[in-house]
């Protein structure tokens, strides 16, 4: 029986480190994803260093209003009330990233829960949960977010809640699809025959096999969340005590022709960050779902 002595393929069990190296190798093959990662790391560094670079409150009046960039003590100029734009952007990065990440985590948690239950159990549970999801999906998400913040009063927690509430349905649909296809795989059925509890099958057996698409979708969700937050602040629905990019753009829009720098730099920051996150998401997709990529090319 030669089959018995036949050595398993490959050079031994893949260690966690080996897998990480493999993942990284596939990621760096996508050049634009690397560029996105560099931009994103810069934004993160800016957010992390904000209290050191600009220890003062970004709302404080720092000097002459409407100073152009590179004049006086202002690197990127000052706004209509004499607030330092560079300081505002550094602190705004903290807000944007915080809201983007936390809102996404909440949305992913909700989406996985709803989609997982609907996909695993099917039947009436699926029907009820998916109809509920559709109710959320019928309302345009940005308008829904405005409505929620207006009702709940603008504060950072409420903005996160609003963004999470409008973002989870798409994830729930994705997770449901993944669970549906996994549900009838033989290894899941083997676990059922074994008498394994449902929660264990969902969390330990199926979920790890669905992680790749969830991670990719979540990374793109962070970008959307940042955009929604900027939009809300632009409309004056941001937390009044927290500096944010959207607020800066909104504050400068009336003087766009006299002081272009007030809206331009925060606007660029929003654009670059969202672009960078999208590129990273695409890179993650290539690295996590290599087979899909090969099939497409």
């Amino acid at each position: 029986m030669t089959d018995l002595s036949e050595a398993p393929h490959g050079q031994g069990a893949p260690t966690t480190r080996g897998r990480a190296a493999d993942f990284w190798r596939r990621y760096v093959r996508n050049r634009s994803a690397v560029a996105g990662l560099v931009i994103l790391l810069t934004v993160i560094a800016m957010a992390a260093l904000a209290p050191l670079l600009y220890p003062a409150d970004p709302f404080s009046l720092a000097g002459r209003p409407m100073s152009p960039p590179m004049t006086g003590q202002f690197l990127l100029g000052s706004d209509t009330l004499g607030r330092d734009i560079a300081a505002g952007m550094a602190h705004g990065a903290r807000t944007s990233l915080l809201i983007g990440v936390v809102a996404t985590l909440v949305a992913v948690g909700l989406g996985v829960l709803m989609g997982g239950l609907a996909g695993y159990y099917g039947g009436w549970i699926d029907d009820v949960l998916m109809r509920l999801t559709e109710v959320f999906q019928t309302i345009p998400s940005f308008i829904f977010a405005i409505l929620l913040v207006a009702v709940l009063t603008p504060s950072i927690v409420n903005i996160i809640i609003a963004i999470a509430v409008v973002s989870w349905p798409a994830l729930a649909r994705l997770v449901r699809g993944e669970f549906l296809s996994m549900r009838n795989r033989e290894f899941v059925q083997a676990n059922v025959v074994m008498g394994m509890a449902d929660w264990r099958i969902i969390l330990v057996q199926i979920l790890p096999n669905c992680l790749s698409p969830i991670i990719v979708a979540a990374s793109l969700l962070v970008a959307t969340a940042i955009l929604i937050e900027s939009g809300l602040s632009f409309l004056g629905l941001g937390d009044p005590n927290v500096m944010s990019w959207g607020f800066q753009v909104g504050a400068g829009r009336t003087v766009l022709r006299r002081a272009w720098w007030i809206v331009t730099f925060p606007g660029l920051a929003i654009m670059l960050t969202v672009l960078a996150i999208n590129l990273v998401g695409e890179g993650l997709n290539d690295a996590l779902n290599p087979r899909l990529r090969e099939r497409a090319s």
């Binding site: 033989e186 290894f187 057996q205 096999n209």
Partner: peptide, 8 residues
Amino acid sequence: ASLNPRRT
């Protein structure tokens, strides 16, 4: 298909 690819 009958073995979970993510478990040893």
